[in-house]
Amino acid sequence: MNAKFFTLSDEKPMPPKGENRMDAIKINNLTKYYGKVCGIDNVALTVSKGEFFGFIGPNGAGKSTTIRTLLGLIRPTSGSASVFDMDIINDKEKILALVGYLPSEALFYPGMRVRELIKFSADLRKKNCQAAAARLCERLQLDTSRKVEDLSFGNRKKAAIICALQHEPDLLILDEPTSGLDPLMQKEFFDILRERNKAGATIFLSSHILSEIQQNCSRAAIIREGRIIACDSVEALSKTNAKRVNIQGTVDLGHLCGVRDLQKSDMGMNFLYSGDMNTLLSTLSTGDIQDLSIAEPDLEEIFLHYYEDGGAK
C-alpha cells in the first residue's frame, strides 16, 4: 500500500506555481442550513487552477451540500463562493458552461437512449461534442443504442461521465465518481482524469474512498459534520506525528503512552504510535523482537485519526 503510494506520488501533478494564478474555486465562510438542520458550517476552501483536489468525508458530512451550492442547485444561507472569479449566484450560467459535474447518483429521463441523452446534454450546452463523446464511449465501452432505464448502475454512471466530460470543461466536479464502476473502468476513468488534468483542467474529487484521493490528488480537504477540519497537501496530511509500528515477536508495552489501534496476533502486534520515540525504542528493546517496521500511516488511518479525535487538532 505504502510502496504503491510512493511510486505513484512521483507521477502526481504538482500544485501550480506562480503568484497571480486564478483560483478555480474559492469558498468564503459558506453556510447552509436546511431549516434548522445544518448542512455545512462556515466552510472555507480554495482550489487553484490546474489542481487535482480531493474532498474527503463520510456520507452526510456535507460534501454534496458544498458541491450543490457551488453549482447553484441550492442557495447558501450565508457566505459566498466563486468559481474562476465568478460569483456562484450572479454568474451561475457562465460558471456552469465551464464546469462538468458528475453526480453521485446518476438518474436520467426514462425512454431516452444513451445517444439521445448525450446529445441532449450537448444541445443544452449549445455545443457539438460528437467527436469527444464518441471517443469517451469507446474508452468506457458504453453502448449508446441502449435505453437509459435498462442500464445497470455502472453503465448509468458511464453515461453520466460522458455527459460531464464531453464538452471538455475547465473544472470537473466529481461526486463519488467511482461507485458502481468495476476496477478496470475505474482505472480507465482515472486515466482520463489525469489526462484532462495534465491538459490544464482543474479536478475537484469528492470521495469517501481514501485510496482514490491518495493516488490521484495533490491536495485534499477533510470535512466532518459540515466543517472543514483539515486542508493540506496529501503528503502533509499523511505526515502526522503518528507512526504505524509493526512488530514480529513479543514485547510488553506496559504503560507506554500514545498507543492506539493496537492489534495483536500470534506472530506479533501492530499499533499507531504518537508518543515519544525514545520511550518507544527503550520499551521495544526490552522485548524479544524478530522483525520491526515503523512507517507512515496511510491516509485511511489518518482519516480515522481525524474522526476519532473529533477533529480537534
Partner: peptide
C-alpha cells in the same frame, strides 16, 4: 421527483 433536476439544472441554462 424523477431526480433528473440535478442533471438538467447543472447545464448552463438559467
Amino acid at each position: 421527483k424523477g431526480r433528473t433536476a440535478e442533471f438538467l439544472l447543472t447545464h448552463p441554462v438559467s
